[in-house]
């Protein structure tokens, strides 16, 4: 079986400073992984590199997505191939209607898959269904993207977009949309992760490297003891 995502010896830097010092991680279809780590460990760099932010430079290693070179793809290609990045603090976009934006995104992805673009009616049907699923206030669909949304509404809007757009993999953020095809990578500082989702695999990121991997027991240990015990071991 081809792994959904395979990160091999990934090194990356920003503004001349190396932040990731060789990450290795393999995710199989249907698996839920969590990467946890203290501030400055490289969590956000890793998620930005996976999403395709060009402010980070990959200096070594590779990322394979369904066997293809992920780092060679533009952000929009990655999204069209099924990678979805849920932002922790999504940007507000005044003047751009939420429905209009989502329809443009879904049709771009459908076009990439060789499917017909959806008309307004079919699109509305999907919106109605998914809005209910993630309990998003439908009025938010008629507002500019994220503008004036509360923190909770913004997060919910991300999950809602994921429900509409994403097929295979999700990185960062919290959700309840687990299924056999969809893999989820949660990248978080938040230690009370288990309240929301139970990961199959938990990895601890520290100083740009995965220093420990385990199952949900590891997450529980982090929840109880924090990251302090890792620091003493690492040094």
């Amino acid at each position: 079986m081809t792994a959904l995502i395979e990160i091999k010896d990934l090194h990356a830097r920003a503004e001349g400073k190396e932040i990731l010092h060789g990450i290795n991680l393999t995710i199989q279809p249907g698996e839920v992984h969590a990467i946890m780590g203290p501030n400055g460990s490289g969590k956000s760099t890793l998620s930005q590199v996976l999403a395709g932010r060009d402010s980070f430079e990959v200096t070594k290693g590779q990322v394979l997505y369904q066997g293809k070179d992920l780092l060679d793809m533009s952000p929009e290609q990655r999204a069209c191939e099924g990678l979805f990045l849920a932002f922790q603090y999504p940007v507000e976009i005044p003047g751009v209607n939420n429905t209009y934006f989502l329809k443009a995104a879904l049709n771009a992805i459908r076009k990439h898959r060789g499917e017909d673009e959806l008309d307004a009616m079919d699109f509305l049907k999907i919106v109605r269904e998914k809005v209910k699923l993630v309990e998003l206030d439908e009025d938010l669909m008629n507002r500019p993207v994220n503008e004036g949304f509360s923190g909770g509404e913004k997060k919910r809007n991300e999950i809602f977009q994921m429900a509409v757009l994403a097929l295979k993999i999700v990185s960062s953020g919290v959700n309840s949309l687990r299924n056999d095809e969809r893999s989820i990578l949660v990248i978080t500082h938040y230690q009370r992760l288990l309240d929301y989702i139970v990961p199959d695999h938990v990895h601890v990121l520290f100083d740009g490297k995965i220093v420990r991997s385990g199952d949900k027991e590891l997450a529980m240990k982090l929840e109880e003891e924090g990251y302090g015990w890792l620091e003493t071991k690492a040094s």
């Binding site: 395709g52 929009e76 999204a79 940007v91 443009a104 995104a105 771009a108 992805i109 977009q161």
Partner: peptide
């Protein structure tokens, strides 16, 4: 904002237009 739109599958030029 541009990156946000692109990360949802919208091509760069279309994202700029939107």
């Amino acid at each position: 904002a541009l990156f946000y739109l692109r990360s949802r599958g919208i091509a760069q030029q279309e994202a700029q237009r939107i």
